[in-house]
Amino acid sequence: MVRTVSITLLNNDDSRPVLQAIEQDNPDCEIQQLPSLIKVDTSGPLRINRGSVEAFLGRDWEVQELHLSLVSLSGEVDEDDDYFELSWGKR
């Protein structure tokens, strides 16, 4: 079966460049809008690249800024200075 990984973010200004970066770098992802929330699902892995977010945002961006608008996730987290990744079964 397909093991979906998923991330849910607040639907706010801080999340917009992150979502743009996700869409650009994970073309197969599905985006679902709920009141005040955005849920992104994909068969994984789902990767957020610092460089892509910075390109959309127009300023430096720390991966850990994600904590400010993160609501929920499903999958195992791998985080470093340049990326944040969700996947299953890598460990």
Partner: peptide, 15 residues
């Protein structure tokens, strides 16, 4: 949502 933004970290502690 302010609480929930901590929740993702709590979830990773759980797994």
């Amino acid at each position: 949502f302010s609480a929930q933004s901590d929740e993702a970290r709590h979830m990773t502690l759980g797994i």
